[in-house]
Amino acid sequence: MSTLFFLLRQACRKRLTNLFPFPHMPESLIEALHVVQEGGMEMNRPLPTPPSLWGKVAYNRERCTGCGNCLERCPSGAIEPSADKKKVEIDIAFCCFCGRCVDSCPVSALAMSDEFLCSSLDRREMRLADSGPLRLSGEGDLWSLERKR
């Protein structure tokens, strides 16, 4: 009997399915998100993410001193020295999101952003050479509106 009540209660509770953002998979998810941001398209909003989420790595090229700590720490070889030898480039496709490079950076040129959608059809898009000055999480990026609500 208690099992029946449990299942009945289960059936009456809020459903857990979180729908895919778009009815059909767009060619590039990141581009589609930009279109949504400009108001060109509607989407199912994803669940809010906690402020401490480890998403894609953000890299401030200007601040980087090229000490190479992150090169030694990266377990998956996602960080490579760039052509001018004093900076690095990050291949998000190899990144395992462990965050050890962020820990090791003496000048805080690296941070884990809360951008977690990073699929793309083009591999070259995944190379990160610079993401500009680092924003604190929740400061004017795509998902922050969701979090404040």
Partner: peptide, 10 residues
């Protein structure tokens, strides 16, 4: 659909 509702799915 009803089965999914019991499982709290869509």
């Amino acid at each position: 659909v009803i089965q999914a509702r019991i499982q709290r799915r869509l």
